[in-house]
Amino acid sequence: MSTTRVVVTFHTTTEAMAWEKACKEAGLPGRLIPMPVQIRAECGLAWLITPQEKECLIKGAARLNLSYGNVVELE
């Protein structure tokens, strides 16, 4: 099975909101969704991207010094 989607997890709702605001302002890809059930994360929100968008997003997040939980690949 190949990776079909990638989600970024967060520690808190506030962290997810800060992430969304910064990504939108920087033109980075993705959108907020409810956390998929197979991931046990702290916050109920996740940031959804395609596998192709992953590298661009993570580099952008590092540039913006954004905090987040994990990057999880889903089949």
């Binding site: 709702t13 506030t14 997810a16 909101m17 800060a18 969304e20 605001k21 907020l32 929100l45």
Partner: peptide, 9 residues
């Protein structure tokens, strides 16, 4: 719900 979270942030 997201609108509320955004407003609070």
């Amino acid at each position: 719900s997201l609108s509320a979270s955004r407003l609070i942030f």
